[in-house]
Design a binder for these strands. Structure first.
Length: 119
RNA sequence: CGAGUAAGCUAUGCGGUAGCUUAGCGGAUGUACGCUAAGAGGAAAGUCCGAGCAUCACAGAGCAGGAUAGCUGCUAACGGCAGCCGAGGGUGACCUCCGAGCCAGUGCAACAGAAAUAUACCGCCGCUUUUGCGGUAAGGGUGGAAAGGCGAGGUAAGAGCUCACCGGGUCGUCGGUGACGGCGACGCCAUGUAAACCUUAUCCGAUGCAACUCCAAUGGUAAGCGUUAAAAGUCAAUGGCUGCUCGUCAGACUUGCGCUUAUAGGAGGCUAAAGGCGUAUGGCAACAUACGCACAAGAUAGAUUACCGCACUCGACAAAACUCGGCUUAUAGGCUUAGUCGCACA
RNA sequence: GUGGGUAUAGCGUAGUUGGUUAACGCGUCAGUUUGUGGCACUGAAGACCGUGGGUUCGAAUCCCACUACCCACC
């Protein structure tokens, strides 16, 4: 992926959950927080609630594929944790791609603008 | 044609665009990048057994503890498999069985019932005479279980008391490697439970690839706490004072120092294996032997895909994590082979 | 990878050394009491003991397989 590395440590996940903002759709829930670096960090979480190993792996792959195809639309410089929700079962990657290209960047930009405006 | 039995195979297919992991080649020598090749199962699952492998322990033997339990074989081994024996089920093909030992000892068997391992309540018969004594397990009733069952003879009434058949036991003999079976004789003194303790026989050292080995480092790395009349720096970014700016306070990040805890990191182990397919030979079979032929997932936040199109019968259960042999459980369908039973026709 | 535990009335727990009808508290329902409600008192209902097999005359209990949940260690 172009501007993205993989998030590994538990600390970074905790930081995103506790300090970050989030944007929710029926399929996924995205936590994001600025990381003051010129690239993004992506972490994907699929819990046991989704189902068995096959369904969890499929969800993870779909999210990764959707992110890869919509990477240019997403602002750079964020830690992002994508949490799969139970609505992802049976969906295609294009459904999530639509969310990644449309609502998610808008939300991020709006929150940034709010902050700048506040400032 | 219908029903059912057993064994086995398969697990949507094809194309396009974009990508992932590993290996090789080119390029490069910190990489990126390009091309080529390969890339999840019958159960990969559950983790219920058995082994390999590794480390530690260990003179030998026994006790304790655990596991197994018809016999013979197969196997590296097994609690697995095959064949056979016995018992049970099915008209049959065939299927099911933790299937050693209560004649070593101990325990338990509620309620009911006269009585539960011992016995006479009712009844029957004889004697006595109105109450007893003796004989009797045929009948009644209770129970899961009551002197082996049933019929005949026999008798005062009865009883393996006697006999035929069946069931079980002991002994002998014959067959079989054996479990066991056939035949003959004797002759019914005695329940069930060992998935109750237990006895007998056989087997078992412990821990598990996060094992373990090597390299680097040991003034390191990671986490937490402290360092505040601020240890230093940065903040475009979070909050308060104020809606904004400045300022300031807190806070965040980086670096340094101190204390405590942990031993992280990289590489190997890691995949060609008691493996698969075919043919031949031996064996009823499990399986063995020989020859030939193909076949190369090896990740480490964890790859094997995403999207689109076409076809049809519209696609189940389900994802390797050191490896293998089994068992158990889940599973839409489709296909093949071999027996069986019923009906119809020739 | 390895090991252990739990499942019983709506809820929380007993019973787990086979034996008749599975016990207790809270809650629910009905009645008594009160002008009304609560408290109190009396009574009742409510369980195929997680699921499926097996052993036994008889299983919540013993054995086997499965399901769900929880915990521990490296």
């Amino acid at each position: 992926m172009l501007f993205t590395t993989v998030m590994k440590s538990n600390k970074e996940f905790s930081r995103a959950y506790n300090k970050g903002r989030y944007c929710v759709s029926r399929e996924v829930c995205v936590y994001y927080i600025r990381n003051s670096s010129p690239f993004n960090k992506l972490g994907i979480t699929t819990s046991k609630k989704l189902g068995n190993a096959v369904q969890r792996n499929r969800a993870r792959r779909i999210i990764r594929a959707a992110y890869r195809l919509s990477e240019e639309f997403i602002p750079i410089g964020f830690d992002m944790v994508v949490v799969a929700r139970s609505g992802i079962i049976g969906k295609k990657s294009t459904d999530i791609e639509r969310f990644f290209k449309g609502r998610l960047p808008d939300e991020i930009r709006r929150s940034e603008n709010e902050r700048a405006f506040k400032k």
